[in-house]
């Protein structure tokens, strides 16, 4: 599975036609956390865990029901940027799924993500967390970073779930 891929369409095989605007940033991935589903649910909904585990999170302050103001300093390698924005959790169906929206803006542009997070018990004390949604990156990052954005977001998601997995262990 490719957690993030620029979607392409090929109208037919014998005549390949292609046009602008059929490209979308997909945010997809699935991660295994060694803990029971309820435990994982609690972790993923715990502000302290979010603050510790969201890569580059400098502050996360509640601002209304299920909404947080966030200051992020995110980056990979030399590429780094500061974003301030919002994290919103909605459509909570404990312990099975919820919707997560992230939105951040910095001097270089903006990042947005809107995904459904599904938790499935896939073994005894094993939960598979599936992320499925769309993202948008605007500004300089989008214009010069398209080749890196897919792997970068995947790497950041992995950092997050690795961190959550560690918390689950103890």
């Amino acid at each position: 599975m490719h957690p993030i891929a620029w979607e392409r369409k090929w109208s037919d095989r014998r005549a390949a036609t292609h046009r602008a605007g059929e490209k979308k940033l997909k945010i997809e991935g699935s991660y295994e956390i060694k803990a029971a589903r309820e435990r994982v649910w609690d972790l993923l909904n715990d502000v302290d865990v979010l603050r510790d585990c969201i890569p580059g999170c400098e502050s996360l302050t509640p601002a209304g029901p299920d909404t947080f103001e966030a200051e992020l300093s995110v980056g990979i390698g030399m590429i780094r940027g500061s974003y301030s924005g919002r994290v919103r959790i909605s459509d909570r169906k404990k312990p099975g799924s919820y919707r997560l929206e992230i939105e951040g803006e910095g001097p270089g542009g903006f990042i947005k993500g809107d995904a459904t997070i599904t938790l499935q018990a896939t073994g005894e004390s094993v939960t598979t967390v599936t992320v499925d949604g769309d993202g948008e990156v605007g500004g300089m990052l989008a214009r010069v970073g398209q080749r890196l954005i897919g792997q970068a977001s995947k790497s950041l998601m992995k950092q997050f779930f690795d961190c959550a997995g560690k918390k689950a262990r103890g």
Binding site: A20, K23, K24, E136, A142, V144
Partner: peptide, 18 residues
């Protein structure tokens, strides 16, 4: 050559790198 936009209207081929 091709100028590529994302569905959201971001120019993905925004430099001579792409």
């Amino acid at each position: 050559e091709q100028a590529v936009y994302s569905n959201d209207g971001q120019l993905l081929s925004g430099s001579m790198m792409d």
